[in-house]
Amino acid sequence: MNFHRLLALGLAFPLSVAFAAGKHVHGEGRLDAVIDKETITLNLELPLDAAVGFERPPRNDKEKAALAATDKTLKEAAALFVPTPAARCTVQSVQAQVPFTGGDDKHGEHGHEGETHHADIEASYVFRCAEPAALKGIETALFKHFKRLYRLETQRSGPSGQGAQRLTPKVPVLTW
C-alpha cells in the first residue's frame, strides 16, 4: 500500500493545487468543460491582466477601449471556441463579465475580501450540437486574441470520462 515512491514522484512536482478556489496567476487562465449528451458547457476564467495588461479601473480612454474590445471578443463565442465542425454545434448562450465595464463593476472586484488587487474575467458559454457523436474536441482562439495568455488549465467531464489538459498557444485544442 505504500505507494510511497510513486507518490513522492507525484507530489514532488509543483501541481495539483491548481484548482483550489480563488487562484490567480497572471498569464494563466482556467477553462472547465462539461460535455453532457448534446450540450457543451464552458466556463472560462482569465486574469484581467492577460487580456488588457492591467487589473484596475481604466485611467484613460485607451484603457476603456481595451476593456470594451475584450468584452466584445469574449462575446463572440463562435469565433472563440470551435468544436469539431462535424458535430455541427451552435452557440446557445454567452455570458461574459469583464471587470470595470459598464454595469458589471461589482463583479470586477470579484467580491473576495482582501483580494482587491486582482481582477478576473469570467465567461460561460453553452453550445448545442446536432451530431454529438462526432464531437472530438474544441479549438480555442483565446491565445490569438490575448497575447499575454500563456496557458489555459482545463478540467473536463464528458462521456469518455474526466480529464485535465493544459492548453498553450502551440496546443490550443482541447481533445478527448
Binding site: 510513486l6 512536482f13 495539483s16 485535465a164
Partner: peptide, 23 residues
Amino acid sequence: GWREEPLTAVLPGVALDELWQAV
C-alpha cells in the same frame, strides 16, 4: 468555498491526468 470548514473537491479523472502530467 465551503464556509464551515476548508474542503477540496476534485474530479478523480482530472487528478489522475495531473498525476500523469507530473510523472
